[in-house]
Nucleic acid binder design. Sequence first.
RNA 1: GCCGGAGUGGCGGAAUAGGCAGACGCGCACGACUCAAAAUCGUGUACCCUCGGGUAUGUGGGUUCGAUUCCCACCUUCGGCACCA
Length: 818
Amino acid sequence: MIDPTSIPQYKPDEIEPKWQARWAADKLYETADHPEKQKFYALTMLPYPSGDLHIGHWYAMTPSDARARFKRMQGYNVFFPIGFDAFGLPAENAAIKRRIHPKTWTYANIARMRGQLRSMGNMFDWNSEIVSSDPKYYRWTQWFFLQFFKNNLAYQKEAPVDFCPNCNTTLAREQVQGEDRHCERCGTPVIKKNLKQWLFRITNYAEELLDFSGIDWPETIKTLQTKWIGRSKGASVTFTSEQGDPIEVFTTRPDTLWGVTFMVLAPEHPLVDKLTTPEQAEAVRAYQEQAKRQSDMQREAADRTKAGVFTGSYAINPVSGERVPVWTADYVLMGYGSGAIMAVPAHDQRDFEFARQYNLPIRVVIQPEGSPEPDPAEMPAAVEAHGAMVHSGPLSGTPEENTMEAAIAYIEKLGVGKGAVTYRLHDWLISRQRYWGAPIPIIYCPKCGTLPVPEDQLPVLLPDDVEWLPTGESPLKLHPTWRFTTCPVCGGPAERETDTMDTFMCSSWYFMRYLSPDYSTYPFDPELYRKWMPVDTYTGGSEHATMHLMYVRFFHKACRDCGITSGREPMLQLRNQGMVLGEDGEKMSKSRGNVIAPDDLVSRYGADTVRSYLTFFSRWEVGGPWNSSGIEGNSRWLRRVWAMILEPAQTNASPETLRALRRKTHQVLRAITYDYENFEFNTIVSSLMELLNDMARAKNAGAWGSPEWNECADIYLRMLAPLCPHIAEELWERLGKPYSIHTQSWPAVDEEAARDEEITLVVQVNGKLRDRILVAPGISDADAQEKALASEAVRVALEGKPVRKVIIVPGRLVNIVG
RNA sequence: GCCGGAGUGGCGGAAUAGGCAGACGCGCACGACUCAAAAUCGUGUACCCUCGGGUAUGUGGGUUCGAUUCCCACCUUCGGCACCA
């Protein structure tokens, strides 16, 4: 019983640390082995230890935590781990700028962030924490690299690669963004550098990555990945230069082969030099130089006019035998298809513009249905629509439906090409010329060549004594001794690879390490892998759509093919949160001065209030601007909850009041159960506020202390527990209920109690609301119609017109059409 | 330019299968308590109005007895891609 004379104040600053300490001491959130319970792996993207927990972390993790707690109350054995994505550039930049060792900086930040994370009151299982920069972790990151190397999924290639001059490192294609091709990290426009780099064969998995069947991921992410992979279906066709060199092209329009009037090679295409005639040599060389410079500069894609140079050579069209000039132009990209195209100006807008620019012939070979054959001299633009083939030798007259198949069959019969699929996706470049990452475990021996570091020599440890000079070379290369080693095969002197791995490599497998962070003979305990994988729900930001979220899928499939993992996909369900903006509606940034610091909010309002406001103020997947007076509402709400539960009142309510309270309780429970399951967190808080309003009315009417009231309070706290774990625990204890609320089961909806005793039927006349009538829930259509027609408002609205039709939606409305 | 998401009161947002538009909260107004203020509690709060009603979910059409919800076109906005052959 509660002593009515001593109702304490709600003091989150006292109860929150108290319960956090108790939960930790009791190991309440350590995932125990419950063979009888169904497993549920809930995962939130691991943070980078930047130094301070940002409100964005809270925004991402709170609903993730609340849902994990909900699942636990539903009876699942829930695993909800946390760790740190601890390698990466900010640590190294801090080292250069402030002369702090990246390791010191990183681990100090982690220590600080652990405390901040604990202040959120999440149910993280800290026993399984990983730090990706720990040797015991990156040993296995290196091990994965070796497995990929051995299975021909990792390879080295020298090619022009994207290089960020500010970060002083190469970047993967995905990490270069926007029209000006800037660095994903720092925004600096990238330059091209010709470097030998390590890549993973993600393109081998292009087709499989397009298959999202069996996983519940947001459509937007699936669309972004599909677009990024960029599958194009068509044909590859081999033309031949007059000198006899095969020139392979990819085309999505093999049906336009007879319309080819010239060819274009990318300026970097290896055949350009060979095909260039002495007369054209100077012009071609000058153009290549200019093209190279231009690719280094910001390029305005929109108003660029097509430019190029004739190589002086000709090629033979394999289907028509026709001789066409070979040009080089930078509108053809070396990085796509074969870096060469067959140009069909009549039916491709880019080729059309180029042909007009240089007075090259235009030949129409496609006639779209219902329109006259275009006149090459007059046509204002290319005709890209499909249509019947004309002026196409033996295939002339092929109807629109068959053109593609017919053309491919024809080139295959001639043996000059075949149906083909090309992807926009590039292999994943993982080399980074930086210190603070996992060293690539490769040794170069002048006698034996490129060799993997033997697995028993892992990890290849990062040396601590390194100078950080922003040279664009890996600091490991400048270390006096580190790179010198012996060849694992011949024992002679050899050198280590000095590049480190892209940190997206570390985050491609961390969820498997969580399962057994200290396991020393394998990256994870296979038994625990079988038990816990795949991840049931993964939550995090959508900004990783074409980076982390694609790498992680690739990685798991590649591991499967190396015999390490099983199953197609690592994460069954993905949900993305939006972004919390500053009060000015802009992205938070120090320079704007609109940053909301969670620590300040916690000391002012308490973690539970911050958690509830973050889930309440917007749809989670949308996000939106922070509102400082908005959070006051949530603070007020929790204080009201506190007082509602603890302040005694009279117990003399009518049976109707109590029945209504019980009905509302179970209706809200039904709604909230649905909302937790479906990530609709904002309406969870609304519903809890709504129920509290009903409780206030019931309390005024004498409901306090009744069995119905006590049941309502019990259910209320259980519903509140996942979202506001501290206040729920405190009130639970104060009601004399057994510790802990977080190990209680989720209440069941009593459908009988939730049923409405009477419902409001909406009565419309010609679709307009005219009246509302109270009826029994099971009312028959005939009775409903009769009651509706008896309404005075309906008679007035009908103005004496006869009733033509009556539409009845049972339990909802009656619409009378007059 | 192409692809995708989003446009609802002063503000954030709700409406789970086409059926009461505006739940819940912020803000605001009034009232109670107070010497006063804060806090708290209560009441009201889309717009117009001749007080009967009328108009409202970015704009314009359409389907339907009925549209925030479905279809078409357009506008605004936020992401993504951007010579991808």
